[in-house]
Amino acid sequence: MTVTPAAPEVVLSVRNLCISYLTRRGRLRAVNKVSFDLHAGETLALIGESGCGKSTINLGLIRLLPPTGTIDSGEIVYRRRDGQTVDVRGLTTGQLRQFLWRECSMVFQGALNSLNPVIKISSMIYDTAAAHGMDKKEARDRALDLFQKVRLDPRRVFNAYPHELSGGMRQRTLLATALLLRPQVVLMDEPTTAVDILTQRSIIDVLKRLREELNFSVIFISHDLAVAAEIADTVATMYAGEIIEMGPVAEVFYRPRHAYTLGLLEAAPRLSVGREELHSIPGSPPDLVEPPPGCRFHLRCRFATDECRTTPPPLTTAPEDERHTVACYHTATILKTRQEELARD
């Protein structure tokens, strides 16, 4: 499923979002001037190394940052089904509580710890329903239906405690719970990381089918490129708190224009090509309390020039596809390198 450019109804629009954490050493800018649009039915994958700010964006979008984190500036505008727009940053606590889950729900990483161990799944469902004025019977029917859809034994799971379920079952339970109130947007933070490869497979299948059936948009966070490639319509690469490249999945993966995206692609193992050695990106992510001047990636970049070391590259649009944006001075060189590599394979 790819989004047709003709019907770009935007459900979530993020502009210049900046989020920082207060640390002992000072302010750590975890997310820096991030902008993107999420269209109805679209799946946007955020990829990047651990600590690049992916999860922070997710928590920031639903204003659930830990007490040390704050949204410094930027806009988060959400468009309801009835066409009204909602400024998420301007919501009161009560309004936010209503907004969450009904319009935008979340599947967290680590299904093990995402379920309250002392109450039954049914209590969790009823709690959620009660918080949003859904009556008990409707919640129950809806939950049983969703459990069925995610290929769980509905009655057994409904009456179980979390510790009685396996990791994959818990993850699917969370997925079903996320869809309980028919939200338009579901944020998913590494939903397939903590489970084994077969469970991962089945969760992805379930997710794809559900998306077709229920037509919600997804922001999918992952460091696993294969999973992202399979599920996403649009891919955004993040480095040191910034989106450095974003575009349709095929564009980004086959015609990357940023050195970091290229590095990620080279570092991913490919089953189809059994022979070559894996490349890693040398060095480690920069210190976000005192980020380096210029392009934040230049310290680890093999294409870096003097320009990269002094001035941050602006976001530009690729000539072949206007949806493909990138912040790099050496797009042409990188594109060429990638195409040579692909040709060699």
Binding site: L96, R97, F99, W101, S105, S114, N116, D127, A131, H132
Partner: peptide, 17 residues
């Protein structure tokens, strides 16, 4: 600090619950 508390918050549960 547990994940399930953040998740419960994200589900919009009432403060009392």
């Amino acid at each position: 600090g547990e994940d399930y508390i953040t998740v419960a918050r994200a589900r919009g549960l009432s403060q009392r619950r």
